[in-house]
Design a protein around this nucleic acid. Structure first.
Lengths: 198, 198, 198, 198
DNA sequence: AGTTAATCGAGACGGTACGTCATGTCTTTGT
DNA sequence: ACAAAGACATGACGTACCGTCTCGATTAACT
């Protein structure tokens, strides 16, 4: 999250200036962290990045686009592969929660979801992105399926949906600090069901 | 969603005028339906309700408070009690989704969640409300537990959380039209687990 | 400038409550002194007087009427009668300036003049009042005329107008601290003219 | 007092748009003439000028600043130079009164004075302006002094103050229609005094 | 080498909404 | 009948952002 350079950036000719783009993305992240989604305005980002508003609008047509790029630029969360589905899922959720908690990505993703509720293009972009991410989760499940850890008639997409839903809601309601025990419960219920008599 | 009366409402003395309150809540709902969350402003509501902005601010300190009351004013979704957990949960989710789809309450609740991402008081209000609603879901589960339909060591709160999470995410990603089969899958996975070998 | 009573005044039945009237006039004066004309609102007066706004509106149809009564309630400025016109006029102006400076009446009268610029009824009330006051000044001059101190063809109304004009402008431009020497100059110029060779 | 152009004015880059400034000043004048000082609000001016409120606030920090510029923009009143002080002063006052009566400048200046009673910055701006204008009047008197028309020990500033006072009060009390005879009386009294026995 | 064209920062523009304040009217309740 | 209390519709206040526009400068790419 580098600060804006002391000296003004100039145009580098008839092409996009990567320094400006970086400065804008850095600034967007910083503003989001410091002022939250409520204080996240193009105006504020431009001020922080020492950039002109049109420069932002030229490259990111909406707040959502900017948020999305900020989110995508960040380090990916680790998807464990322990060979056991329960450990993979618990590990994935724990990693995801701590990643969201400890970096700015939680704020960014929350904002993105919020933005998508009023901006149709944001909703589409988010759907695209979430589709891609969910594929990863699905892979965990499909790996387990291949290993015979889950029944053959299980629909991995639905399971992945459930897992993602749990994560989203905890993000949106500020409950990213759940103890491992709770998360493990969720995963166990999912794997073994809640009905008695196994 | 009655229209504002033709003749201006006057004060009815030194106490709250219920006609105004109704007109404002009606207008809030109408604005949300017609212009979406993006177009939902106190100004717009005041205009639509032929009410003064101060009247709105007097009774609802924030957009969130207004949204919450609009949501709470609406008919409750039916919580079925069939005697079988699977049917109860499938029925509940189907009822909830169609309620959200077919009345304005889906839009309202989405907006409320979005608002909670930038307004701390909205977040608290939502948490309170969600806590209350989740208690209902928990009851379904506790009833089943009492009937012996689920294992005695299952934590109903966690299960209710999972169910609510699924509902929220489908609301937020505009997927309230899931076929019953999909919802039934979710409920089955939850009840019987996804692992093989029962 | 008594403070509002600690305990709420009750209605005394179907007639004007003089305590309320006094409390309102006191409050009006206090508000004007403390917050200036800019902060002088019916709202503020009502708050300060612990009175309802309708109570004020019932008895004083406009801010101007209230201001006027506040002004009229105050002690009159002394109009000296020394037997010499110059001393009378200098004394009158000095008394008037110090009265305006040292009591709240300067603020009140300024406000009244300002109010009269946007409120026609205030303008009329002020014209009436000023007419009455100017009669006093005219008397000083007519006394002098009777004594033979001024020429017989002099129009006392015009002279009084000139004197009042000087006073008004110094009030309106915050120059009530003129030294006696300056005021004496004004009076001398008026009495003996500025042309040479008397 | 031209009307706003049919087509919306756009920004002309990162500098002040003189068209907007003109439109705003025109609108301010028009609003003042049509609705009076009571109806003179920044909102109304913005509406009339088809300008955004922030554009007005950007360039004129207060109503007073706007009023002042409207006033200063107007044609100056002629200051005659006939070689005789009496004619100069009578002519000046007659010109000033008819200028105030027949153009909007009377309303504007009245408003400015009223505004100065509640807004300290307006008071300062008015004092500055009045200081400058009074210098002109003083020049008339100093010219006469140089010609020997008035005594050498006369203070021109005090005389100018008296003349301006007379003009202000007639403006503020809506008496700009005085016949020349009355004004000539005032000037004569001032020049030759009101005491008998010349 | 000179010209063209895209980009940069800056910031003004017409707007909309914000949340607050005062206006003058109204009604109920309590003397 | 009147006082008090305070809600009401209205509309202005001054501020923050919105997304668009035009500038003057800078510089790469194309004559």
């Amino acid at each position: 999250m580098a600060e804006a350079a002391d000296t003004a950036r100039k145009s580098i000719g008839a092409r996009r200036n990567p320094d400006s783009a970086d400065a804008i993305l850095d600034a967007a992240e910083a503003v989001l962290v410091e002022a939250g989604y409520a204080g996240f305005s193009i105006e504020a980002v431009a001020r922080r990045a020492r950039a002109g508003k049109p420069t932002i609008y030229r490259w990111w047509p909406s707040k959502a686009a900017l948020l999305l790029e900020v989110y995508q630029r960040q380090k990916r969360v680790d998807v464990p592969d322990t060979g056991k589905l329960e450990e993979d899922l618990v590990g994935f959720l724990m990693n995801l929660f701590s990643h969201w908690r400890e970096t700015s990505s939680g704020s960014v993703f929350r904002s993105l979801i919020a933005e998508a509720q009023s901006d149709e293009t944001a909703a589409e972009a988010l759907a695209d992105y979430a589709g891609g991410r969910q594929a990863h989760t699905r892979q965990i499940i499909e790996r387990a399926k291949a290993r015979g850890e889950i029944a053959s008639d299980i629909d991995p997409a639905v399971v992945a949906d459930l897992v993602a839903s749990y994560a989203w809601r905890h993000l949106l309601t500020n409950r990213l600090g759940e103890p491992e025990a709770t998360i493990r419960k969720v995963v166990r219920y999912l794997m073994q069901g809640i009905a008695p008599g196994r």
